[in-house]
Design a protein around this nucleic acid. Structure first.
Lengths: 258, 258
DNA sequence: TAAATGTTGTTATAGCAAAAACAACATGAG
DNA sequence: CTCATGTTGTTTTTGCTATAACAACATTTA
């Protein structure tokens, strides 16, 4: 019924990222379980030291998550959880809007201070971050997209974005697998990965090279052991290197298919 | 141009409620101001101790708010502020959804544990909280609404809710002022507040009594000095007391108008 | 070239504030 | 009186903040 611990702890974690402390989360959850409990009951339900319950409840009352009765002993009631969470979210969201606007203004004002950004090579860690950057890169392409792709993740999402761009930019892809039908307006070569690309100490290694408009390059290296990381650059040398790389493998792919 | 301090501090505060620490916020803001800065430049811009900049940047990288170049010295780049804030919000929001669902399930499962809730009187502090509860109370009325209202706040919102209910429940209101046209389906008496209601030590004191379906009562007491607080109850005695109170003043209002 | 200087990235450690945990005491109802 | 409540104060812990020191490397100057 009221399944214990496991789930409860997770909810507490979630509440913490909404700005509550551990105790505030535990007390609130306890109160949701038995509305109208006394301080001592809350203490027993939540495991929070009895003396700590009072200041914690005070804070929850301030945050409009709890109300008090004027009986003796006092009893406490949670606001309906959906209302409570929503009201927390609303306040966070308004902060987010404020921060976004302020930062964006600063960002735009200072955009002119570009300092040879184009000459640098940026490292990106974490699949999520890479995903965002990569899709951003592809969907902002104006002329050409060249992809050399031997990696499991992101395949579907990339294909989806390419579908959207297929009529406005030139697309060429070398990969080992394609999901769905291949559109006529793209040049796709399906190839098993070349030898040398799955050798090495890594259990599962994959890679992808993305060239956009001949001026931007993103390279993804994924291994199960060390996580995924990527490089991005608009630097001449970097782009040229991977353009050569891509030319080599795309011609390899063409030959072998003939 | 780049207006200083004042605004930045506020943005930093907002970022903190999105889960960043003070330093993380300051460093990120500095980076938005000059993208591609070195650690030392960030230190100078943000006021964060140079040695602290490194671990802070590590955390920001983990949170996908910053990427690194592999030059020497390293240079750092912020993700576009709107993307950054959005990605923070997204993660918070997913926590919120999770918490809301989990809590709501617990709440509904445990609803049967009602422990004579109806006999208690609940205190509610803070205008915002009172507002939510009051509007919730009124809009869930099924039979009757009786209001005795001598208070500035909330007038418009209450009227709005009443407009929506005017055809489904019986509405009677005694107050000192009405905004807009008085609908025919409501019984409204406009009266200056009775003597005794604005006496006392408080500079600006106001009150409101709300009786719903003859079984729920909410009483609001507002004073500029001590803030606003409210009582809510479904307790027999409490409701009866304020029903008598309301009967008395509504008959007073009727008489004087004839 | 060699010594002096400065910068970067790292590590260690002390300080601090909020939260957590505990202990002691006053109160009030039965 | 006795028990549970509500309050207060103190200690411990925790995570962020702040400072100092260091090795590695680059730059300057003699």
């Amino acid at each position: 019924m009221v399944e214990p611990g496991e789930n409860q702890a997770t909810i507490a974690e979630s509440l913490k990222s909404l700005g509550l402390t551990k105790y505030e989360a535990l007390v609130y959850i306890a109160l949701v379980r038995v509305a109208g409990a006394t301080a001592t009951e809350i203490h027993e339900l939540s495991g929070v030291p009895r003396a700590s319950v009072y200041p914690v409840l005070d804070r929850l009352i301030q945050k409009n998550l709890v109300s008090v009765s004027n009986t003796s002993p006092k009893r406490f009631n949670p606001v309906r959880p959906d209302e409570g969470v929503d009201s927390l979210m609303k306040s966070i969201e308004s902060d987010a809007v404020f921060a976004r606007e302020g930062l964006n203004r600063i960002y735009l004002e200072c955009a002119h201070l570009e300092r040879g950004d184009q000459e640098l090579i940026w490292s990106i860690y974490g699949e999520e971050n890479i995903r965002i950057r990569l899709l951003d890169l592809i969907s902002n392409a104006t002329e050409s997209i060249r992809i050399f792709f031997y990696w499991g993740g992101l395949r579907k999402q990339i294909i989806q974005v390419l579908e959207e761009k297929k009529n406005s930019v030139s697309i060429e892809v070398v990969t080992d697998h394609w999901e769905g039908e291949i559109p006529e307006s793209m040049n796709i070569w399906i190839k098993k990965p070349p030898r040398g690309h799955d050798i090495g100490p890594a259990k599962s290694l994959g890679g992808g090279v993305f060239l956009v408009d001949g001026s931007k390059a993103m390279v993804i290296m994924g291994s199960e052991e060390e996580g995924t990381s990527a490089l991005y650059s608009e630097a001449r040398g970097f782009v040229r290197f991977f353009t050569v790389y891509w030319n080599f493998f795309s011609s390899w792919a063409r030959k072998k298919s003939q």
